[in-house]
Amino acid sequence: MAGNECAEQTPPLDSRSILLRKEILRVLEHSRRGHLGAAFSLVEILRVLYDDILHFKSTAPDWPARDRFILSKGHGCLALYVLLAEKGFFPREELERFCKPEGILGGHPDARKIPGVETSTGSLGHGLSAGLGMALHARMANAPHRVFVVLGDGECNEGSVWEAAMSAGKHRLSNLTAIVDYNKMQSYGSTAEVQNLEPFADKWRSFGFAVREVDGHDIAALREVLRAAPFDRDRPSAVICHTLKGKGIALTEGNPAWHHKSRISDDELRSLYDGIEDTPCVKPV
């Protein structure tokens, strides 16, 4: 599977995916800022993780047997916050205080403040190492919980990602799954132009991971792949999710201008709401 091939064959978003994106727009309505493109490409990945894969207790975020989840691409946090609120980690009203002085939700996730966030991210290239430490602990403690880390593609420019990947391969941590939101667009432009990652799956494979590729907006396919992890009982898993940055609204799809926006105007907000209403929608999968 290469390029945007699978993203182009994506089935239409279902009503739950549309609803989650509307909830992100509601956050933007209050904050007028945020990494919208990065969040929209993540929605289905996080939705499947929180709906179908991760074991957690939102009323007891430190439950020792929980699976550990790290959003290493911390700038995609709008999608995470919406899901954490929906799952009951904190009240939905908290979303209205995104980036506000009195709020707990900042432009990148802060583990000191947000129930359900394992480690603070924002500076790229940190999450996989932290997850590796957590996975090593689980193995030392003979604990069955697993560790999932979502990385961005631009994030994979960081050398520390590959230090961590090399180490995870060495330790044969099958309880660790790296998931890459491969939307092929970073801040300045396309990943092909800024820092080509290909052959991306081969890179992960050569670092000792068992690799699967999937359409990162196809709920059924994501479920199938993530349920199948670990793909090898002797190796960490990597899931390369082919996604579309800004997925869900024609205006934002593949548009680097929507990587991050501040001072979002009323007109822009209206365009976003109109855009999401125009997006074809099917019943939940």
Binding site: S129, L132, G133, L136, H137, A164, S167
Partner: peptide
């Protein structure tokens, strides 16, 4: 791989 080592240490300490 000092960056990774310190990150790993953090993950272990969080546990």
């Amino acid at each position: 791989s000092e960056a990774n080592v310190l990150g790993m240490a953090a993950g272990l300490a969080m546990e």
